[in-house]
Amino acid sequence: MRHASPPPAAQDLPAAGGEIQAALNPAPASAAGPAASSPSPAGARRGGGGSFTALLGLPTSQAMELLLPRQVPPPPAPAPGPAFPSDPHLVDRAAARFSSSFASPPPSSPSPPPPPAPAAGKRRADPAAKGKAAAAKKGKAAEEKPDGEDEKPAYVHVRARRGQATDSHSLAERARREKINARMELLKELVPGCSKVSGTALVLDEIINHVQSLQRQVEYLSMRLAAVNPRVDFGGLDSFLTTECGRIAGLNCKNGIDLEQVTWPEMGVHGARHLMQLQQQFWHGDLAHPHQVAPQWEKRGDGHPPIFSNSSPSLFGYDLTSSGVQQPPPSKLKAEL
């Protein structure tokens, strides 16, 4: 799984791209105040309000165009685009002239708040515009580059070879196929005896066989585990694993929380408490049946099992301190981990 882990993250990138951008950008944009969180037209308007001098870079007619509609509807600030239909157009036009960065939010995802790149860009261009009106051009050139960098993860670059179709549908289809093929390669690497065969169907056959065999093996092993100790119901297993389990739980006592939180996030604290309860039952259960445990301890040459004297809070402490003593028996199990 070690080299399987990067690809999923990379696949999540397009979706997370917006968030990453949003996470990267607010550093300058948060200084601009509420403009950071608002959708782009309103944000541009407010950002424009802040960087009034940036308008100096525009020709007068465009600047007036930008200015006038802003004075007409004063209150509708928090409402997104649909509240004022004519406004975004104008702003967009001016912005397209001001910088090409308005095209950067991917058109397919309108729902997440688009990256506050425009506001940030204006903010960045602001000092330059304050210095000189002519410097606005330089600011524009400067801000195009980082936006271009931001844009990159949002798109998958597919290169069309000679004779291949270049319309967006076939490009998307080809990108999808390439993704699937990459996954196939990974699976081929993972499943034994799969690297020899070629052809998708045969590889899939191998994968299916492997999964089925693994599932059957789990069935068989659980049968064996169930048959191992029918009388004591994992009692022997328990006491054997007591140290190991306690040790692992002790090592993971910080991780125990997120270990339990996992499947259902709401479990949260309750899950952690549950884990603790389990542990306590565990030890108290051993207290209740010392005769079961005692031979094991003696076998280990561990004359004085300090659990019996210890209460649960110091449970982990005990495990951590005495794990060195008990190393020999669990090391058998440990070695295979």
């Binding site: 996954r183 993972l190 789990v218 659980s222 199990l333």
Partner: peptide, 26 residues
Amino acid sequence: TLDYVVCLRTQVELMQCLCKGSRPQL
């Protein structure tokens, strides 16, 4: 499938390990 296969394999491995480990105790 990829994730599932890796986890299944780990499961098999650990259960084998448990089987092996619990036998000497018996």
